[in-house]
Measured scan of single mutants.
Amino acid sequence: SPISQSQFIPLGEILCLAISAMNSARKPVTQEALMEHLTTCFPGVPTPSQEILRHTLNTLVRERKIYPTPDGYFIVTP
């Protein structure tokens, strides 16, 4: 029987999409709110552990794709 394939999207890209959507909705993007958003909006995607989430967010900050503030994470705009 054929095996169904799913699209692979890197966690960093999913986080950027989620942060962008939450920023547009003016929702604060904390790590907890981000986990909740991922569970709700990406039900088929396994939720990352806190450690993996933190590591991926730090990587995105180093890559200058997002930036942290006391009010949460935001997408870097050119």
Rank of each mutant, 00 (worst) to 15 (best):
S6M: 06
S49A: 06
A21N: 15
E51M: 04
F74T: 10
I19Y: 00
S24C: 07
F8P: 07
S20L: 04
N58E: 12
P10M: 14
Q31V: 11
E63T: 09
P48Q: 05
I19F: 02
L34P: 00
L17I: 15
N58W: 07
D71I: 02
P78A: 09
P78L: 03
P48M: 07
Y67D: 15
Q50N: 07
E36T: 12
T30I: 03
Y73S: 12
N58G: 12
C16S: 07
S1V: 02
K27L: 06
P46C: 08
M22G: 03
S6A: 12
N58Y: 04
L53E: 00
L38W: 09
E36W: 04
L57K: 00
Y73D: 05
K65S: 07
R54M: 12
P48W: 02
F42L: 07
F74L: 09
P2S: 12
H37S: 03
L15E: 01
Q5M: 11
S6F: 07
I14G: 07
L57Y: 00
Q7Y: 09
Q7K: 09
K65A: 05
Y73E: 07
L53C: 06
E32S: 10
T47S: 07
F74C: 10
S1A: 02
L53F: 06
T56F: 10
P28C: 06
F42E: 15
V29Y: 01
R62N: 01
R62K: 06
R64V: 03
F8G: 06
L60R: 00
I19P: 00
R64F: 02
T30L: 03
L57H: 00
T56Y: 03
P28I: 07
M35F: 14
A21T: 07
A18I: 02
T56R: 04
A33R: 09
T56H: 15
P78T: 04
V29C: 13
M35P: 02
T39D: 15
I52F: 13
I9L: 14
I66W: 00
G44F: 05
M22T: 01
I9Q: 15
P46M: 06
L60N: 00
I75T: 11
T77V: 08
E36D: 11
K27N: 05
Y73A: 07
E51L: 05
V45S: 06
K65P: 00
E32L: 06
P28N: 11
T47W: 02
C16T: 11
V76K: 14
A33G: 10
A18D: 00
V76L: 14
P70C: 09
R62F: 10
P43Q: 09
L17T: 14
T39I: 14
H37I: 01
T40C: 12
A25E: 09
Q7C: 05
T59C: 15
S6N: 10
G72P: 01
F42N: 15
K27H: 06
L53I: 12
C16I: 12
P78F: 02
I75R: 09
T59H: 14
G44M: 11
P2K: 05
K65G: 01
K27M: 06
T47N: 05
E32A: 12
P48V: 03
L38H: 02
V29D: 00
H37D: 03
N23F: 01
S6I: 05
V61H: 06
A25V: 10
V29H: 01
T47D: 02
F42M: 14
T59S: 15
I9S: 15
L57S: 00
T40N: 05
K65M: 04
L15N: 01
I52E: 10
L15A: 10
H55W: 07
Y73H: 11
P2C: 05
R26M: 06
P28Y: 10
M22N: 02
